[in-house]
Design a protein around this nucleic acid. Structure first.
Length: 538
RNA sequence: GAGAGUGUAGCUCAGUCGGUAGAGCAACGGACUUUUAAUCCGUUGGUCCAGGGUUCGAGUCCCUGCACUCUCACCA
């Protein structure tokens, strides 16, 4: 510690000047670039070739013999990896000649670097894939070769050169010119394991995306899924809107809201917990098919399936009902599957999901009976059963008890995909009752591997009943636990006539989880909620 | 909020019974013009999460705190 550095440009005073410190080494190289007149932060790079395009043009790489005959290359991709094609031998067999290929201009991040004397192999990654770059001292010249020696793992670099094959057959850009794009000043993560610390990966998603395999793919799939869902709705004449995220009453769901404050109005506002009530107002206004794909906020705990802000789709179709929404749900999920490879069998956490439509449909009462052996309409039996599994029944509405039994005994075992239909009415204050049975609400929930993915109903459009349901709900429950906060304006809107309609809500993050095989919601949200960084992190 | 686990080099991780802190990768110096986690030779790098305690002696045992992970709770 107290030893004075024996050599190097370091002035000695502090450890940060140690040339073997990765950060210092990168700064030193940055300075060397500047001394050579090279901008370490690069500039515009035109006529760029994406790596995916390089790969799609691999067939343009050919071999021209001395006689001028153009030969196709062996099929390296089909070759047995244990017995690869000896391309050097192939070339010898075909006599003197030269490889030809298109000139490409690639740019990306240096992922691997293998210097072998006067040769350097770089693997760079752009957001379409990885490709190898061959840098030969003789081929690029001394200046560019010296430049390549200043490249570190993680730097953004570019190369112009011919697309070709190395002796092992790997598709490679044979650089003729190199460019510094941007120097990375932080040390690179371990080059095989990458960053494994979950907290760091989420906190520094930029590094996670840049260095860990598959992360980009997952988020690209997320984008494709959302795009497909939007497309399907648009094709079906739905119109996309943006409701307010700041609400004066946080309604439409049972969740504790985030509270915020408007200064000039000196007014308490809530971040929205659902999209529902404003979309229904729009249906009153005549937007007959309307949807919003947006963020909602719930002030609750975190778990592998919960993030305080998450993305929800809600869609409403006038003159429809919950069965119409079931069909829509199937089409939306099918479109998401088509957008992510088209495979209807997906593995998730070691289990297989069969997304083939139509999905199974079972009534709440039937599933309840199957799991418990008791008739859900037999109130005494329900109470007995609840007590038997430790559910408190005092002061609770019987349907709440019923639902707690259902959640305890049925939901986790619903591998699905399965539509659970026809819920007890009293736990559904925004839902229309069945015409022939007011105890049952026209509602379904879609379960997959015990996770609730979608929730829909035939929307209640009777303003008087809606108002009454708001009031009963309010009197029976803690305000913060109730989804049915009295919203007078919403009731007034219903008095202006909302058409009979079906409404659907889909938890987009959970759907993306299932379709991309990610076990944690935090792996499908780019920037999940985290505690503030402490001093121990840098 | 409860329980369990984890915290050691820039990164990924070992560290036995309490006895002077280890490896791989990265970095630095050297060799190498077809590599594939390139290889080979050499070198540097540590507030062992923080604070307290037990002990002749603590990365290791005890207590407190912090952070993260998992499970549970909250959660249409």
């Amino acid at each position: 510690m107290n030893q004075i550095p024996a050599n190097g440009p370091a002035k000695g005073e502090n450890d940060a000047t140690d040339a073997t410190d990765p950060r210092v080494a990168r700064r030193n190289k940055l300075n060397q670039l500047i001394e050579r007149g090279i901008d370490p932060y690069g500039s515009r790079f035109d006529n760029r070739t994406f790596v995916s395009e390089c790969r799609s043009r691999k067939n343009e790489v050919k071999f021209v013999t001395a006689e001028g005959q153009t030969l196709e290359l062996p099929d390296f991709d089909a070759a047995d990896p244990d017995a690869p094609i000896d391309y050097r031998q192939w070339k010898t067999d075909n006599g003197p000649g030269a490889e030809t290929g298109p000139i490409v201009r690639v740019a990306g991040r240096v992922m691997l670097c293998r210097p072998t004397g006067k040769l350097i192999f770089l693997n760079i990654r752009d957001w379409t894939g990885n490709i190898q770059i061959f840098v030969g001292k003789k081929q690029v010249g001394d200046d560019d070769f010296d430049l390549a020696k200043l490249f570190d793992l993680g730097d953004l670099v570019a190369a112009e050169g011919r697309l070709g094959r190395t002796n092992t057959g790997e598709l490679t850009v044979f650089a003729e010119k190199l460019f510094m794009m941007t120097k990375m000043l932080e040390p690179a993560p371990e080059k095989h394991a990458g960053m494994t610390n979950l907290d760091l990966r989420q906190r520094m998603r930029y590094a996670d995306l840049a260095f860990n395999d598959g992360v980009m793919d997952t988020f690209m799939d997320r984008t494709r899924i959302i795009k497909a869902i939007r497309q399907t709705l648009d094709d079906d004449q739905f119109c996309e809107v943006e409701g307010p995220t700041l609400h004066t009453i946080a309604g439409g769901a049972a969740a504790r809201p985030f509270i915020t404050h408007h200064n000039t109005l000196d007014m308490q506002l809530y971040m929205r917990i659902a999209l529902e009530l404003h979309l229904k107002r729009l249906m009153v206004g005549g937007m007959e098919r309307v949807y919003e794909l947006g963020r909602v906020y719930r002030n609750e705990g975190l778990s592998p399936r919960h993030n305080p802000e998450f993305t929800m789709l809600e869609a409403y179709q006038a003159y429809g009902d919950y069965e119409v929404m079931m069909d829509l749900t199937e089409r939306l999920i099918a479109s998401a599957i088509e957008a992510t490879g088209g495979n209807y069998q997906r593995e998730f956490d070691g289990r297989m999901i069969d997304f083939s439509v139509p999905f199974q449909r079972e009534t709440y009462a039937h599933l309840f009976h199957k799991a418990t052996g008791i008739d859900p309409s037999d109130d005494n039996a329900v109470i007995e059963f609840a007590k038997g599994i430790g559910i408190k029944t005092d002061g609770k509405h019987l349907d709440v008890v019923r639902n707690e039994i259902f959640e305890e005994k049925v939901e986790d075992s619903l591998d699905g995909p399965i539509f659970v239909i026809d819920y007890p009415a009293s736990i559904c204050p925004l839902t229309k009752r069945k015409r022939d049975n007011p105890e049952v609400a026209e509602r379904f929930e879609l379960f997959i591997l015990g996770m609730e993915i979608a929730n829909a109903y035939t929307e209640l459009n009777d303003p008087d009943l809606q108002e009454a349901l708001f009031e009963t709900q309010l009197s029976g429950q803690e305000e913060e636990d109730s989804m049915a906060k009295m919203d007078h304006d919403f009731v007034r809107a219903l008095r202006y006539a909302m058409p009979p309609a079906g409404g659907l809500g889909v938890g987009i993050d959970r759907l993306v989880m299932l379709l991309t095989g990610q076990r944690s919601i935090r792996d499908v949200i780019l920037f999940p909620v985290l505690r503030p960084e402490t001093d121990s992190a840098k």
